[in-house]
Simulated assay, not measured.
Amino acid sequence: MILSLVAPRKLLIGGGAVQQLPHLLREFGLTHPLVVTDPWIVSSGMIDRVLAPLAEAGIAAKTFSDTVADPTDTVVAAGVALLRQEHFDCLIGFGGGSPMDTAKAMAILAAAGPGQAMRDFKVPASADRGAMPVICIPTTGGTGSEATRFTVITDTANDEKMLIAGLGALPLAAVVDYELTFSVPPRITADTGIDSLTHALEAFVSRRASPLSDIYARAAMPLIARNLRKAFAEPRDAEARSGMMQGATLAGLAFSNSSVALVHGMSRPIGAHFHVPHGLSNAMLLPAVTAFGLEAGRARYAEAARIMGFAEEATPDAVAAGQLLAELRALNAELGVPSPQRFGIGEAEWEAALPTMAAQALASGSPANNPRVPDAAEIAALYREAYSLSR
């Protein structure tokens, strides 16, 4: 058996790590970065956390801040147009998952041939070339994009969130500084935290899990389980924020070397059609999808429950798997995760979108990694179940 492991060449992890960014660039011989971020990070002044140390080190950086919550192919194309105006030698994705995913996609599209578009790199295509290295600096403890070979970009012409995978999306390096998350509001803390929990759990129960991906998933799950509630309730708790950032990065390494599964396959269409934030749509689906696959993946779900401290070591698999499901439902309740109905999506709209969403979920390939592989009718039934009950 040949195992594969992909990861950034360097990870800087810890409070204040962003101050080491100039040294990190010099280590790789990089001198002219384009920082990819979002409008809020610029307007709030948070962009100075990156620009100030670069300026002090004599590194001239420019900023592209037109990213949107669900990265689109049009925004990526606009970023590439700016990228080609100067001789930039790297991209810095600074923010949540959207700026980081946009930076990755820009690197891939900038390396593309004439006439190629982001849709040409949608899975099952392999996006293995990037025009330049990407360095990621996350500001939320959740997406794990700083450590993965994936990016998710919306095809605006078809209202489809496209999974794009390959070495072109793998960051050269990442700076994981939990102090950047102190100002993250509770709702985003909850949504991105459940997103990272989903990454670790799906990587662990995936049909594509390996001994190497298991190492990261086993390390990530207890960190997230121990710290998510505290980070939600006490946003400036350094220990909880540090644990969540480490857990998110480890979960990213886990699913980058394994895969996500049915939750993510179903989540992307919800975001594309109804503009639900990615982590929140994962949270809406996680209990129902876990229940769907519980019997088929009982041993792995039970082991996950023990790893996260939701079940004792001696608890039988059937009981431990049930305790995991109960804890996921309780977590949604405590963190105030709404159902799609409570989020404000009309029942008629939801029902009308089900055939398209089910087809898009299947086409992504992620459902095939689930312990129990669904067909389109079963996916539609799960969407209906999740519509009015997220926990």
Rank of each mutant, 00 (worst) to 15 (best):
P114T: 11
V123N: 13
F121E: 02
C136G: 12
T181G: 06
P124F: 14
E160Q: 09
R149E: 00
P185N: 04
S126Y: 05
N158D: 15
I135F: 10
S183P: 11
A157N: 13
M118W: 03
A112E: 06
L170A: 03
A127S: 08
P186H: 03
A117K: 14
T154A: 13
P124S: 15
K161Q: 10
G113M: 01
A117D: 07
P133Q: 07
D120V: 06
F182L: 09
I164G: 01
F121M: 02
G168E: 00
R187G: 01
R187I: 07
G144Y: 04
A147R: 09
V176Q: 03
T139P: 02
Y178I: 06
A169K: 06
T154I: 08
Y178V: 08
A169S: 11
D128G: 10
V152S: 06
D120M: 04
L180H: 10
Y178E: 15
P124I: 12
K161H: 12
D155Y: 12
S126E: 09
T140G: 08
P171R: 02
S145G: 08
A165N: 10
Y178S: 11
F182E: 01
F182Y: 14
E146P: 02
C136S: 14
V175A: 05
S145C: 09
V176I: 14
D155V: 11
D191E: 09
A157M: 12
V134T: 13
S183T: 15
A174F: 05
